[in-house]
Amino acid sequence: MSDKGKIVVGVAIFAALVSFPFWYNTGTAKPAPELIIAPEAKAAGACVLPKDQMAKEHMQLLDGWRNSVVREGQRVYVAESGKQYAMSLSNGCLECHTNKADFCDKCHEYASVNPYCWDCHVNPKEK
């Protein structure tokens, strides 16, 4: 095989490119942001689902909610406890979690996700 040199160089370049995100970000790791619960949320006591589940699955829940609200016209969520909540980002979630910047954005930024929810929905508390 006379192309050995070319292949080695090629593989090296490929490996360097593929691993780019790793070495580019080396040493810039930050601790996960601390979740700040707004006083309104604290006062409410419980969310629609247990805290752990919300942390892990809120995106799927919201995805389900939007189908339920927009497509089925069912806008009220009945939690395990029997308590009813408006299935609405602006008029439900953010009623308690008034601190969008601290509660939502910080963590999304940390996780490098950019949910397009906010292209349309707003934080009504934000002036």
């Binding site: 799927q60 389900g64 909610w65 339920s68 009945v78 299935m87």
Partner: peptide
């Protein structure tokens, strides 16, 4: 897959 919201958990507003 959609996150399934069972029908007894999603209801209409009473004032609808």
């Amino acid at each position: 897959g959609e996150y399934f919201i069972p029908s007894e958990k999603a209801i209409k507003d009473q004032k609808v």
